[in-house]
Computed example of a mutant assay.
Amino acid sequence: MSSSSSSLKFVAGVDEVGRGPLAGPVVAAAVILDIARPIDGLADSKTLSARRREELSALIKTHSLCWALGRAEVEEIDRLNILQASLLAMQRAVMALAIQPELVLVDGNQAPKLVYPVTTIIRGDATEPSISAASILAKVVRDAEMCDLDELYPGYGFSLHKGYPTRAHIDALQKQGVSPVHRRSFGPVRQVLAASLAASS
């Protein structure tokens, strides 16, 4: 944390997970850590094993001053575009915090519209503990939801790739068609829809 923000007590870190997938929501989390109860091992969620993320998620929920989640659904992603939907999810997470932050640290270089002071930090999920904590919470929640969606919409492999555009996912999409949780504004999904429309005309 920078020297200018180190004297603040209520600093919220916020991050989102799920910009790249072809299916499912984008999920954001906001966390205000308790400086009196530091959590060892916080890091960018993508660098951690699933088991370690689960362990840290439990610690974050019990050791932080407060935390909250926000999300944007597939319909909002298709209507707004993924960047605006991601910013909306982050805004919702911050606004759901039980404690008003004195400063909000946002991963990346674009910030959601907030009534609080905001600082954007590129690669903040790897350097700022509160942003790392937010990225871990968001990823654990979204990964679990994609596993649930795998049961609702079997055959796509959501529990394995979490909706990201892997070869297996593209193949399943082309074979099975577009599910209700696929993002229709994303190129590979649009192509499948177009091919289906052409075949039926």
Rank of each mutant, 00 (worst) to 15 (best):
S3D: 09
S5C: 07
V11K: 10
V14E: 01
E16F: 10
P21E: 05
L22A: 05
L22V: 07
G24W: 05
P25A: 11
V27N: 00
I35W: 00
I35P: 03
R37M: 02
I39A: 01
D44S: 11
T47F: 00
S49P: 04
A50Y: 06
R52C: 00
E54G: 05
E55A: 12
S57T: 14
S57C: 13
L59A: 08
H63D: 11
H63R: 15
S64L: 08
L65Q: 15
L65P: 03
A68V: 08
L69T: 11
E76D: 09
R79T: 12
L80H: 11
Q84W: 09
L97C: 06
A98S: 15
I99K: 03
P101T: 14
E102M: 06
V104C: 06
L105D: 03
D107P: 02
A111M: 06
K113Y: 08
L114W: 12
V115P: 00
T119Q: 13
A126N: 10
E128N: 10
S132E: 03
S135Y: 12
K139S: 07
E145I: 08
L149N: 07
D150E: 06
E151W: 07
P154I: 14
G157W: 08
H161D: 01
K162L: 00
K162H: 05
P165K: 14
A168Q: 15
A168D: 12
D171Y: 10
D171R: 15
S179M: 05
P180Y: 10
P188D: 07
V192R: 03
V192G: 01
A195L: 06
L197Q: 11
A198H: 07
A199F: 06
A199G: 02
